[in-house]
């Protein structure tokens, strides 16, 4: 299975993602933001970081970079595109998933492990996972998910919420919401479920010597689903 990770100026989780994808069996290629064409890929990942120094709005500049037209075309033709953290911000700014990520409610950069609950497994990312609650890492200043009421209705009607912030038992109450996100939303799909944007970093949880291995479960399952 082939994957591609896009590096934007200011990306800093691109290499971690490259290591994670290779570890679980992908043959990953790094792609520069200024390239025109994506290599032939089964999965394209927009990594975390601070593309363009978070100028204007996080992800807004990167969403207009050259490679993004190819990424958008790939997504529109049904290709799997995943955006993590800053990658999620780039996805919302490019219009591939609805909504936007605002500054965290309490104006703090948050860097910690959180629990997230998978609500809907009818998609290529979570299908066949035998677990609902995952411990993953977040590190962001702008992860406060927001959308209009009309968008929220559409998102909920189409089961587009990918993951919710919760506690270790999967309770999705407001007190387990780290950043003020609407309805505890931590990740979201496009309508067709081939594009996934989420704030938590599965690539940071792929080794016992890191802070956990729930990310490994995600990647192992993902490659099996794509095969």
């Amino acid at each position: 299975m082939k994957s591609a990770v896009i590096t934007f100026p200011g990306s800093n989780c691109d290499r971690d993602m490259h290591v994670a994808l290779n570890k679980f069996g992908f043959k990953n290629k790094m792609v520069w933001h200024n390239d025109n064409e994506l290599p032939k890929s089964d999965l394209v990942v927009l990594p975390g970081g601070f593309s363009y120094g978070d100028y204007l709005r996080c992800g807004s500049m990167a969403s207009k970079s050259k490679i993004m037209q190819s990424v958008i075309n790939f997504a529109k033709s049904g290709g799997l595109v995943m955006g993590i953290c800053n990658g999620f911000q780039i996805l919302v700014e490019s219009g591939l998933v609805p909504g936007i990520l605002l500054r965290n409610k309490y104006l703090e950069f948050i860097c910690k492990n959180v629990f997230v609950k998978i609500d809907n497994k009818d998609n290529p990312y979570f299908k066949n996972l035998d677990k609902e609650v995952f411990e993953l890492h977040i590190a962001h200043n702008e992860g406060n998910y927001f959308c209009t009421n009309d968008q929220l209705k559409e998102i909920e009607d189409n089961n587009q919420v990918a993951i919710y912030y919760c506690n270790d038992n999967g309770k999705t109450e407001e007190k387990f919401n780290p950043n003020g996100s609407l309805k505890n939303i931590a990740g979201i799909f496009n309508k067709e479920k081939n594009v996934l944007g989420m704030m938590p970093h599965p690539e940071r949880m792929i080794d016992q010597s890191l802070s956990g291995e729930d990310g490994s479960l995600f990647f192992k399952n993902l490659i099996n689903n794509i095969k």
Partner: peptide
């Protein structure tokens, strides 16, 4: 197209 995000 760029300067404003009309969602917010």
């Amino acid at each position: 197209k760029l300067l404003a995000n009309l969602v917010i």
